[in-house]
Design a protein around this nucleic acid. Structure first.
Lengths: 193, 193
DNA sequence: GCTGTTGGTCAACGCTTGTTGGCAAACGTA
DNA sequence: TACGTTTGCCAACAAGCGTTGACCAACAGC
């Protein structure tokens, strides 16, 4: 009767297991090397099922990396601790959420994924920056600097797996990065105007 | 007579044009999507020539991304300006050198490239850190933090191409990042021991 | 003159990829 | 019981990949 959902009645479990396998493979191998055949094998179904559920490899990826950062409301934390709050939030997110690694690894090769990351920055991080930084006009640049440090750490820790970066504890990361983000968000411009 | 070089007498120009095309493609497309056929087309030769000169796709990549950071000697700059000196050096390097973008984009998918980046960190950046940081035992962690910030900025600027990151001038990048690297290298540990 | 080496092209190989359409069960409803 | 829908597997497709080996043209030295 209802055509508002495409498949959805009984085998949501299959759909979910495909998505789980896809996330794992995309996070581990990137876009091209995460083949539909390998994902289907992990989910113990036939490759053609993937097409039925998600029409495309692109569609599968888009469904696999639906993302909401759920950033804390800047009004909830004191302005001087926002850096620390943000870094702690990101570390927790990366530790528990495979989607972020998948998005990062794929975004490097796949323009659609890169654009989605850019959208996350625009819709979720820039507003936070606009709320706390001295001149709202600088919000995009300041948010981009924060993103560069957070993504850089994720890159060396979860993707490139530099030993010294992997060895850091969550606490240490927070202690090192918090002042950086705090300065990027709230400090006056470092150069003479 | 001399067998110290494998091919090298007359057609070094072909070899060089293959390498140039390869660097460009690897930097723009990553490992899998930079096909030998496309590289050969760019260099206006037959794909089989690539194999003759470099035996493998792996061999081609390895030859295309030979890299030396040529970091400044830490003894040449005053300790308090090392952060600024390093950031300026890296910005110049990234602006003029396609190899770094290629290495970054490929390293995300290709373990061999990731290992090479790790080697660069180990052999070229950690020694600098060991030379200036309070406790030499912390050198790997401090160098990894510096790498995370530098690579993160390169990621958002040259690979993901976030507009706010692209819009930054070289000077602005130096002004923002220098204090970060300076702190990662020389500050006392930020947390209580 | 021949002849061997070098730089280069052509056509094909085996393989993997994303993707498609047909067919077989299982199930709910009438 | 009969039937239509859902859920799934199987076999195949066209295309693209890295890679190979046979063949050509030019040029060197004897």
């Amino acid at each position: 009767m209802s055509d508002e959902q495409q498949a959805g009645r009984r085998s949501d479990t299959t759909r979910a297991s495909i998505l789980a396998a896809a996330r794992e493979r995309f996070a581990a191998d990137g876009y091209e090397r995460a083949t539909i055949r390998a994902i289907a094998r992990d989910a113990r179904i036939d490759p053609s099922m993937v097409m039925r559920y998600f029409t495309n490899k692109e569609g599968l990826f888009a469904a696999a990396v639906a993302l909401d950062l759920e950033l804390p409301d800047p009004a909830d934390a004191p302005r001087e601790e926002l850096g620390r709050t943000l870094v702690r939030h990101f570390v927790n997110l990366w530790e528990e959420n495979e989607v972020l690694t998948a998005l990062l690894r794929v975004g490097v090769t796949n323009p659609a994924a890169a654009e989605r990351m850019q959208g996350v920055l625009r819709d979720q991080l820039i507003p936070v920056a606009r709320h706390v930084c001295p001149d709202p006009e600088q919000a995009p640049a300041r948010a981009a600097l924060c993103a560069s440090q957070v993504l850089g750490l994720a890159l060396t820790r979860y993707v490139l797996r530099f030993p010294a970066s992997v060895a850091l504890s969550g606490e240490e990361i927070v202690d090192w990065l918090a002042p950086t983000l705090q300065r990027y968000l709230t400090a006056e411009l470092p150069h003479t105007p």
